[in-house]
């Protein structure tokens, strides 16, 4: 999967948000709040041409002390959530 073009992660008074700033997303009228973990993952994969749920899992394992099956479950959930709200696609 990959992040959609036209979204930008920004820091708002210490919180992480994703806003639609690109011309590809002029009609996207939502703003997304990210927790620390989601912001770390987004920053890591937004630079890539594409990524997999396994990439997200590995990123979680590299940064946090967490069991592999829990990281895999969290990675899958966050990937689904990003697709659902429309900021990432297959």
């Amino acid at each position: 999967m990959k992040t959609k073009k036209g979204f930008k992660m920004r820091t708002l008074l210490g919180e992480h948000i994703i806003v639609a700033e690109g011309k590809e997303q002029v009609n996207f009228n939502k703003m997304i709040s990210l927790n620390e973990t989601a912001a770390y993952l987004w920053e890591a994969v937004d630079k890539r041409d594409s990524f997999t749920v396994e990439d997200l899992r590995d990123l979680l394992l590299a940064e946090y002390e967490v069991e592999e099956d829990i990281a895999a479950k969290d990675a899958k959930a966050i990937a689904e959530r990003w697709k659902e709200i429309g900021i990432a696609e297959d």
Partner: peptide, 13 residues
């Protein structure tokens, strides 16, 4: 932020 963002002119692209 969402309120100020959506009420301000300017093209963010």
């Amino acid at each position: 932020y969402a309120m100020i963002y959506s009420s301000s002119s300017g093209f963010k692209f």
